[in-house]
Design a protein around this nucleic acid. Structure first.
Lengths: 142, 142
DNA sequence: TACAATAATTATATTCGCATAACTAAATAC
DNA sequence: GTATTTAGTTATGCGAATATAATTATTGTA
């Protein structure tokens, strides 16, 4: 009955959302070109905005492998976006920290990615409020 | 006043949508692994579901370059997913067409990608209908 | 007919991300 | 106190995607 969701509507909504994010408003190339590094490196910088991380944590966050993290951090270090320091707790661990330049780059990426679609800015205020409420509920799976 | 959109709400909504599509429900790896080809090739197959395309059109659709399209179509042809044929209109052009196996693969990809998030299936019917209406309006930029 | 433009291919090089194995240094367990 | 585990690095190779130049075949045009 009413607790059976309208499969077609769900499919339509999901497809529209997917399309909007990945087809109409895909800014990954723009971000990578603006910062002059690959999108994957941008992702690393953005993760570090939340605070310094060990190589191990960064590897897990990006779901990549340790050797590649080493190479990538080497590169980001050379570009002056991050620094590596030995952890005071565990001298095996190294802590990767954003430099001011790295923070600026990550924030520039955030700004580009956060820029909403034009159509969303034109939404009716009531619809926007409703959408806000619904999206919040979707984000955290019930 | 009311025609000034709530910037914060817009940002929140867009971020939630971006997150849902790219973080929580990213099926690109799953699709690529299931079909045994890169996601980029999957994208090519999916584009061909709409009908045969020339190499040139496919190149434009995927925003790649002609040499790479040649290589990719070579590969898809070897795998039995597409065929190449000379265009009757312009003998310089080649038309890329999905084989039955290619169509099946593309449809399998569609099914995986179209699978909506669990949280969306649990939506209140009224909210779903509203979301459906709003997403439709967002998809086609006003 | 000669010349320019277009569609596709071939060849070559580079970057990026992924994977694996081998290694060093430090911490932990027995 | 020796053995094992863990964090990170080094080395090597591979496939995917991008880029550029050169070539062939065909079409369109001066």
């Amino acid at each position: 009955m009413s607790d059976t969701p309208d499969q077609e509507a769900v499919a339509r909504v999901w497809s529209a959302m997917y399309d909007l994010v990945l087809r109409q408003e895909d800014r990954r190339k723009e971000v990578a070109e603006t910062l002059g590094v690959s999108f994957f490196r941008v992702k690393a910088l953005r993760r570090l905005l939340a605070g310094p991380k060990t190589m191990r944590e960064l590897t897990a966050d990006l779901s990549t492998d340790k050797p590649y993290t080493t190479l990538m951090v080497d590169d980001l270090e050379q570009r002056g976006y991050v620094t590596r320091s030995v952890s005071p707790d565990d001298r095996r661990s190294k802590i990767v920290t954003l430099t001011p330049a790295g923070t600026a780059a990550a924030e520039a990426a955030e700004r580009i990615l956060a820029r909403p679609p034009r159509s969303m800015l034109a939404l009716d205020p009531g619809d926007l409020a409703t959408l806000d409420r619904i999206m919040t509920s979707l984000r955290t799976p019930s």
